[in-house]
Nucleic acid binder design. Structure first.
Lengths: 233, 233
DNA sequence: TGAGTTCTGGTCATTCTGACCTTTACCTAC
DNA sequence: GTAGGTAAAGGTCAGAATGACCAGAACTCA
C-alpha cells in the first residue's frame, strides 16, 4: 500500500534530470604489482543514502549541453578535467531514487596519470579500485558494472587505451593498460607486433631509463584522442 | 538580441524529457532489385516544424520506464511492436527545439518483415528509404545518421541481422540483410562458410520452393533475440 | 531438351594469430 | 670486473581465418 501510494505520488511530478559520470584511471597499486583500474567516488552528504559513496553528479543546468554539464560537474566535485568523455547510457527506471523519480544521463571518462595525480582526495572524495567499490548509493553499482563492460569492450576494438597514458610511453605501458582493463596477461612479443603494425603509433628516438633491464623505446600516439563514435563526430 | 532573449527564457524552465525511436525494417524495393532499409516517419501536425516528417516519439510519462515509454509510443504512433528495441543515445543540445529546451532519449528498433507488413500507412505515417528521408524536423536527420552508423557497426560484430528475419530463412536472405545494411555485395560462398561455422544457426530439413533455381535450405536462429549488451543483461 | 539461375561444396594463396625461442642491453650483487 | 637477473626487441613456426575463385547440383522457364 505504501508502495502504491509512492507510485501514484510520483506520477504527478515530471521526472528530474541529472548527470553523473563514471571516471576511470590507471594507478599503480602498491610498488611491486601492476597498475589497476581506479575511480573516484563522492560521499553522499544528504538523504537519501546519506554517507554512502556515489558517482559524482548533479542536476542538469538549463543552459548547458549534456556533455558540458558532465564536464563542469566533474571539475567541481573531483577537480578532474578528463581528456576522454563520452555518453554511457540514460538510466530511467522508476525506483532509482526513493522519493522523486530521477532520470540520469551518465557519462564515462578516462583520465591520464598526471591528471589523476592532481586530483585531490578530501573527506568526501576518495579513490576506489574499480573491482572493489562496495555498496554504492542508488543503482550506481549497476551503472559502474555497465561502464566496466563498455570499457572492456571498447578497449578491444578502439584506441582508447592511450587516453590512460601520457604523451610518450613504452609499449609495455600500453600492454599494462590492456592487461589491467581486460584482467588477463598478454604475450609481450605478440602484443608488440600488433602495435608496431598499427598506423598511428610512432616511435620516438628516446628511451626510458631507470629500469633494471634494457631501456625500452618511447612511443607517441598520433591518432585523435577523445570519443570518435558520437553522433557529432 | 532575440536569440539572447530566447536563451535566457529557456534558462528559467527545466528541460523537457521526450522519447523517440528510429525504426528499421527491410523491404523489397520494387520487384527485381534487392531489399533495402526502410523506416517509418510521422508527419508533424503542429508547430514547430509543422508538416515536416519526424521520428515517432512523445513525452515521457511519469509512471513508465524509458524502454516501456518507447515501446508504448511506438505502438500508438505506428502500430509496431518490434522484437528488437535498444537505447541509442540521449540528445540534449540547447537548440534542438526552438521554444522549450527538449532532451530526447532516443531508442532504435528492428522489425521483422511480417511485423512491418502489418504496419498501416496513413496520411500521417509513411515509410521512407533510410537513405532518402529528405529534410526532417528538429535534429532528426542527425539522429537518423547516427542510428544508421550504429546499425552498420553492430551488424558487423553482433547477431542482430536475425531481428530482420522471420523464424526460418535461407542463408541468402541473411546475406541480403548484410548487403542492404552495409551497402556492398558479399561473396555468397564465403558468407555461407562463415554462417555454417556460427554456433547458433541450425539447419532445418525444409527447403524454400518457388525460385527459378535450386531450392535453398531453410535455417533457424537459435541464439537469443533482443539486445544483449544493455545494462540489464 | 537446353539455357539461365542460384545453391552448395570445394581449392588455393594470403593474412592473422598464438606459442615460443634467441639475442640485446641494462641493473645489481658478489 | 664479472656473473646472473630482467625485460626489450626481433624472429620462427604451425594453425586459423579470410578473400578470390572454380565446378557440380538442382531447380525453372522457354
Amino acid at each position: 500500500m505504501d508502495y502504491a501510494a509512492n507510485v501514484s505520488e510520483r506520477r504527478r511530478q515530471p521526472p528530474e534530470l541529472a548527470i553523473s559520470t563514471v571516471i576511470f584511471a590507471l594507478r599503480g597499486d602498491g610498488e611491486a604489482s601492476r597498475p589497476t583500474l581506479w575511480m573516484p567516488l563522492v560521499r553522499r552528504t544528504r538523504q537519501p543514502y546519506q554517507d554512502l559513496w556515489a558517482l559524482p553528479g548533479g542536476p542538469l543546468s538549463a543552459a548547458e549541453s549534456l556533455q558540458d554539464a558532465a564536464a563542469r560537474n566533474l571539475q567541481e566535485t573531483t577537480g578532474l578535467q578528463p581528456d576522454y568523455l563520452e555518453q554511457l547510457y540514460a538510466f530511467g527506471g522508476l525506483d532509482r531514487s526513493p522519493a522523486q523519480r530521477v532520470v540520469s544521463i551518465v557519462y564515462w571518462a578516462l583520465v591520464k596519470p598526471d591528471e589523476a595525480a592532481l586530483a585531490q582526495e578530501t573527506d568526501n572524495v576518495r579513490w576506489f579500485r574499480a573491482d572493489g567499490v562496495g555498496q554504492l548509493a542508488f543503482d550506481h553499482n549497476q551503472i559502474v558494472d555497465y561502464a566496466l563492460w563498455r570499457l572492456r569492450n571498447k578497449v578491444a576494438y578502439s584506441s582508447i587505451a592511450y587516453a590512460f597514458l601520457g604523451e610518450k610511453f613504452t609499449l609495455a605501458q600500453v600492454r599494462e593498460v590492456y592487461e589491467a582493463v581486460l584482467g588477463k596477461t598478454l604475450d609481450p612479443a605478440n602484443f608488440r607486433r600488433q602495435l608496431r603494425a598499427a598506423p598511428d603509433i610512432e616511435a620516438t628516438d628516446e628511451y626510458l631509463q631507470g629500469g633494471r633491464h634494457r631501456p625500452p623505446r618511447l612511443f607517441r600516439y598520433t591518432g585523435s584522442t577523445g570519443p570518435k563514435n558520437g553522433p557529432l563526430a
